[in-house]
Amino acid sequence: MSNVTVRIPTPLRSMTGGADEVTVSGATVKDALDALGAKHEGVLSKVLDAKGGVRSFVNVYLGSRNIKALGGLGAELKDGDVLAIVPAVAGGK
């Protein structure tokens, strides 16, 4: 189990009590997201689809790399890692 920081994008902060970062423990990205979902209800369904995959308009990064390039949700974590949830954002005006 590793302690990692999950960065919460603005649109999802209403579900984390306004927190922009949440610390969780887990051995893999999947574990960490599950732990996030257990702590804050409603977040997980915004990130993962019904089949448990990352939604097509959301990306999850481990450090600076998309987890897709690191083996997906099974990518292993180490202490101090930073996960960032980055959804598509359209605003510009």
């Binding site: 649109p11 209403s14 915004k46 939604r55 097509s56 308009f57 959301v58 990306n59 959804p87 598509a88 359209a90 605003g91």
Partner: peptide, 20 residues
């Protein structure tokens, strides 16, 4: 490549949350 499809309306931030 980054986001193959736009989010469905119910998944996008709501109008009430808009602001910058």
């Amino acid at each position: 490549c980054l986001y193959p499809e736009p989010p469905p309306p119910e998944m996008a931030p709501s109008c009430a949350e808009a602001g910058v």
